[in-house]
Design a protein around this nucleic acid. Structure first.
Lengths: 251, 251
DNA sequence: CGCGTCGAGTTGTACAGCCAACCTGGCCAC
DNA sequence: GTGGCCAGGTTGGCTGTACAACTCGACGCG
């Protein structure tokens, strides 16, 4: 039985418990979960709440579900939450790596055409571009070029240049990244990339372009990250209806 | 008002209608959706059903949602359904490209260690490996190495070597790919890749490794696809809770 | 003019119930 | 043995209700 503390929805707490149970191997891999009705009774909630919790696990690819038979455990829990997939810092820490980096450049300038479309700005409005190198345990792995609309850029520009994370302070200032659209492909290093990552000009890099909006649907960031090959891989899960993204290291 | 025909769940039909409405610009980009209660009335269903429909749209990144205010339209509809993200053939067709390809090699052999783990096989069990080149409008863009457990491999091996799609006939045989886990990174062309794709040995390729299971949680495919840079990009969307994957061309 | 308060509107969470669709295993007839 | 049938168990789909949490504009006060 779980007690409501009002700070987190019941179904999320139930989901967390189930996730833990799966990670502990309480049901075995390929094993079966108890029926929804049974779970409802043991957790002292209604079946609807259990179904909400299970929908979260299903979106993470932890369990299957189909009509007529009990849910099957697909794999062990991935620790990463959504926020870790957006924040390089938290993601790295969750892997036991020590994230680092430095701000190479901060530029304020009028938005170009692509930026105006992505950030939904009018002609002539300014953006703030931050160029950073990011490291894992000291070794450079990624170049990040983030473009922010002005009001957010102000916050970023005033951060300690040595700050490891920009996401955390931004969230503390009330900036939320709730909807993120990623595009992943391959590109090739330009002179700056080569210099910052210590690779050759023209070497292949794994590119992630990221477009984030806040809960109101207002664009808050447009970023292009370039990773050295072999340092990270992106993992995505999708079921027939819902899916989940995470990032993992390949070092 | 939508009529139930019993072949598709109401909430999916409502979702499809809303998707269409968004694509048609009925609500405008950045505009607001009607309230759940209003939608429930216009479609003649309960609010719960509307919420199920909206959950689908949210997972696709089409709308935001937060407490206290109406949903905001984030972007226009992406046509691609989940199945298109798994089937190269359907994906290509949905873009107006003509997919093609040829089977280069079919091998039956004992599963190696990785394959045994991915397909959950016992030592000594055989797998069927299919090596294919896939083309878009005639140009080779991808090398696919798919490994199937025996009983599925039998079906694949008996397909017409000129068959464009393997997924479609497999589904007709009752093989379903409901849960798919993707890993995306960069790798480098070996001699076979270079030969088949017409690139140089050691050239960078975008790699997608794919692990699919059926509704019962049984592994059905373990595949490694290698794309020429610049031909495709993977796009992923995630909201705080749910996410959606699609693939798009960059040609 | 700026500021806080208030209230209507809206989504989130949770409960209870009902039936349909479907899977599984056991039983029975052949 | 083999195949079909049936009953029980289980999830999917849908409805209805209630309240909590939150947003945002209107309004009034200083």
């Amino acid at each position: 039985m779980i007690v409501a503390d009002g700070r987190q929805a019941m179904y999320r707490k139930v989901a967390a418990e189930l996730r833990q149970g799966i990670a502990d191997g309480a049901y075995g891999s390929g094993g079966r979960l108890p029926a929804e009705a049974a779970l409802a009774q043991t957790y002292g909630v209604s079946r609807g709440t259990i179904r909400q919790a299970l929908a979260l696990l299903r979106a993470d690819g932890l369990v299957t579900s189909r009509r007529g038979t009990r849910r099957v455990v697909l794999g062990t829990a991935r620790v990463q939450t959504f926020s870790e997939t957006v924040s390089f810092t938290r993601w790295a820490r969750s892997l036991g790596e020590e994230p680092g980096g430095r701000v190479v450049d901060v530029v304020r300038r009028p938005a170009d055409e692509v930026e105006r479309e992505k950030l939904r700005l009018a002609e002539g409005e300014e953006v703030c571009m931050v160029l950073r190198v990011r490291t894992l345990s000291g070794a450079p792995v990624m170049v990040e070029r983030s473009v922010y609309p002005r009001h957010i850029g102000e916050i970023v520009a005033q951060l300690d240049p040595a700050a490891v994370s920009h996401t955390v302070p931004l969230e503390e200032q009330g900036v939320q990244f709730t909807d993120v659209h990623h595009t992943i492909d391959v590109t090739f290093a330009d002179a700056d990339d080569a210099d910052l990552l210590g690779c050759g000009i023209g070497d292949a890099l794994l590119r992630e372009r990221r477009h984030s909006t806040d809960p109101a649907g207002t664009p808050v960031e447009w970023s292009e990250d370039r990773y050295l090959p072999g340092t990270v891989a992106f993992t995505v899960h999708n079921s027939s209806a819902t899916t989940g993204l995470s990032r993992r290291t390949t070092i």
